[in-house]
Amino acid sequence: MNIETQDFYTQAILSMSALVGLMSFLMLGQGRLPRLILVFAMQGMLLTLTAILAGYELNSPHLYISALLTFALKVVFIPSMLQKQVFAMNIHRDVEALKNNTAVMLSGASLMVFSYYVLQPIIHTSSMIMLNALVVSLSVVLLGLLLMISHRQAVAHVVGFMSIENGLFFAAMVATDGMPMVVELGVAFDVLVAAVLFGIFFFHIRTSIDSLDVDMMNKLHEVER
């Protein structure tokens, strides 16, 4: 299938999928928190644009509401909250030395291939847009997990967590033309509450271990010593 022969909408959505996936890779290799948060906000912006595009093309106005919610939460509220925390804790200049950066990047690439493999069985039942959107969204979910494994800062974990939500939202939007409105509002509400709770937690963690390095939270073990 040649991409140039597709219509404009297909081409645009496919490019968006590629960009959303790319953002996840950029986050994966990012050791500086302010930049990590910036990339996360850019991913949110791409999602907003995709929602507007899909809303226009598929003629479903409720996707505009999704776009608005995404913009407010993922581009404005969460990044600015995280940014404020990073500056308040004076860790914006720290560069986290990422161990095995090459290995992490390579496993990220393999995760993307793995996503294609997992979703292989549905190739016959879906259009090119849907398949690629689902694959990109699954790989964004998996890359978010990898981000959380490879970074030690609590802020990076929250970014990973929220980018997983981004991946899910991308799937819901492109592959299925948006979930029913009531579900989408519910999910947005959960994300909002989660973001606020993360803010509270940063404060608690900092007062208890005087750092946001999650490796220092090591008091509880599966088999007690």
Partner: peptide, 24 residues
């Protein structure tokens, strides 16, 4: 306590990430 905050953070992250798979 430091232990309870660690437990809550683990609970939040693990369950949050886990349940994201259910949303997928």
């Amino acid at each position: 306590t430091p232990e309870s905050i660690e437990a809550a953070w683990k609970y939040f992250i693990l369950c949050g990430v886990g349940i994201a798979q259910a949303l997928f």
